[in-house]
Amino acid sequence: MALSLSPTPGPARSHEPAIEVSHVGISFEDKLVLLDVSFQVGRGETLVLLGVTGSGKSVLLKLLLGLLKPDSGRILIEGQDLVPLSENELSLVRRRMGIVFQEGALFDSLSVYENVAYRLREERERDEEKIECRVREVLRFVELEDAIDKMPAELSGGMRRRVSVARAIISNPLIMFYDSPTAGLDPVTAHAINVLIAKLRDTQGVSSIVVTHRLQDAFVLSNYVFSPEKQGLVAARTDGRSGRIDPTRFLVLRDGKVYFHGTREEFVLAQDTYLRKFLI
């Protein structure tokens, strides 16, 4: 399924990383949540964010979306610093980003169609025919066109996440954030979500950060690529492309600090006791 994504142009120069986080820290009242967090995500790269519950993963995603302001540090999206921006200016930057929340966060009172069309309406698109065409296109991408008239309450957990993906990608984001997209799902549905993430990355070149507790998801994204011909995942080396295309990096947060940042190989071969706990 070819989804015609033409990413919203930003002010950035092409050699800049899609995301640059520099010495970011945040605390709530007396509780330190993130301290001196720094990393970069290149264009078309995937960063897998690992960490135990309460290590600051979801807070980091909210900082990257500008939903929270850091106490210190800089966050650059496509070269633009989010920290000094007002809510109105942030709204413009957020058009280049999409997020899939842990439980989907679909609007309960709106149908699947209205949920997915929400962003287009917010961007003042008035042509209803154009809206419907685009909504059907993205719902087809997540293989849920049949559910277009359903209400969120009628959907299963996996379907809600897929609608959430459709809602996030409708305005052609350059960057996607996934907050535990497979949490609580059965293995088959979780795999379908992973395929979607890989599909967006490999067919549209979308940079992404995936927060997950499931290491197998991280390895699927790292070891496989989406093949448009086979409409599914294939091992990265047998895709007919030259060399390893795996652009996946791993980042482990521990007590609000970056504990590990590196490639899959470095992560798998690490002898550190704490990192080994993720692999067992």
Binding site: K62, L65, L67, E87, N88, S91, L92, R94, R95, M97, G98, I99, F101, Q102, E103, A105, L106, F107, D108, Y118, R119, E122, E123, R167
Partner: peptide, 18 residues
């Protein structure tokens, strides 16, 4: 409040709505 705890308010902001 229900929208807030189910992250719908965050989703709204992420989708560019104040």
């Amino acid at each position: 409040g229900s929208m807030l705890v189910s992250e719908q308010v965050d989703a709204m902001r992420a989708l560019g709505t104040d």
